[in-house]
Design a protein around this nucleic acid. Structure first.
Lengths: 228, 228
DNA sequence: CAGTCCCGTTTTTGATCATATTCTGAGGAA
DNA sequence: TTCCTCAGAATATGATCAAAAACGGGACTG
């Protein structure tokens, strides 16, 4: 989603070159994506200024971007908070993720190099380990990395952007679900994805991704609490 | 796309209540959408500050939002410009628009009220008139309104958001194409859409929308100039 | 001698901050 | 309960600092 420097992946970057508003955006984005901010939680500018030890302008800009991303919601009265998914939203997310991520997977399957598949396999092994030891934060981060990396192989920047945006919508809720049920309840479809990639079978990959998406979304749906 | 008050549609709003950054965002967005800013054109903060007679902060925030929307691109060296579509982008847009807007149309078909169909029909008549007199700006605005209004009936905010974002991507190029070929080269599929809506035939509506999308995108593709 | 390229200065533009202003929502008084 | 006041947060401004691009003079090459 227009993330010029993915500093989160390659920390050995040139230096403190990237502007403050970019840094703030990245950090806030990660916090939302990996559930450090709970759905419904209020987000204040001044709170972030103190928490991130940054100026006001960068924080403002980061918040605007995240609102546009759908990662935060503007509540009308100058208030901003982390969005709470509703049941209807899940239906939309299921449809959108299925159509977009499956297409991405299809494209990736025809383009991906063997070395990159190995990287994905490593990620998946690390992911298994995170599940085994109940490391929720690690699980979320690795799962996201796995899909992001897979999507990146598609060479379809517009669709990748859409997929990223969708992920931001359910990221916070995913954390809640994992915290409640634990990570072990997610069967791992990634193995099927990797197998399909190695066989260069786009249909197989797309099918595996579809199942992965459906499983994830159904978990979120099941974990949705009525507002109470 | 998180547009609380669509001041562009109802100008007789309560007053100057909405914040400056929102106003700037709306105006810039419209300029991009309806081709007042050409693809490739550079956008400077200070230029907008003068042009819109606004402060720097609102302009900054509006630009951030539009970058996140994909309506502007950050060129790495602090420079911002209107994006230029490439041939590969069209393929992605075709796929994404087809899957998303057809689904929206399907949902709209089951929910729309007769009165709203009449409104759409009026819009379409005005659109015909704009085509007849070669009013490109009017054509673009009405065409956008028609689709936006149709999509809104779907009651699927997340998908609507995605569709809006896609529209922002090809808006500028559409203007270029219209300017070059004129508006008369676009056959009008809206009549089929309206017919399907009246019959409450979701499949028919979806099919008509798909054709409309395809036609529009192929026009854009045909009008794409290699960078030269 | 003309054209081209390089490297310094100049100027434009973006990033950030401190501060003034406006607005919202809560709590107390009638 | 309703209205008024007020604290606190968000919005918006302009100044200041830093960086990148544009410009132009000079040297080098054909």
């Amino acid at each position: 989603m227009n993330v010029p420097n993915s500093a989160s992946i390659s920390p050995a970057e040139g230096g403190a070159k990237l502007p403050a508003h970019e840094v703030v955006y990245q950090r806030l984005r990660a916090q939302i994506l990996f559930g450090e901010l709970a759905p419904g939680q209020a987000v204040t500018i001044q709170g972030l200024v103190e928490a991130l030890d940054s100026g006001m302008t960068p924080v403002r800009e980061a918040i605007r971007r995240l609102i546009s991303d759908g990662a935060l919601v503007f509540q009308g009265n100058r208030r901003v908070s982390v969005p709470q998914l509703r049941a209807d939203d899940i239906d939309e997310l299921v449809y959108a993720r299925k159509t977009i991520e499956c297409e991405l997977a299809r494209r990736a399957a025809t383009r991906i190099e063997t070395a990159e598949i190995d990287v994905l396999e490593d990620l998946d092994l690390a992911l298994d380990k995170a599940i085994a030891i109940g490391d929720v934060a690690g699980y979320l981060a690795l799962n996201y990395q796995f899909h992001t990396r897979l999507n990146a192989q598609s060479e379809a920047p517009i669709l990748v952007d859409l997929a990223d945006r969708l992920w931001l919508r359910f990221g916070p809720s995913l954390r809640v679900v994992c915290g409640r049920f634990g990570t072990q309840s997610f069967p791992d479809r990634h193995k099927d994805i990797l197998e399909g990639l190695r066989k260069k079978d786009a249909d197989l990959v797309a099918l595996a991704v579809e199942r992965d998406v459906l499983q994830g979304m159904e978990q979120v749906r099941a974990g949705l609490t009525p507002v109470f």
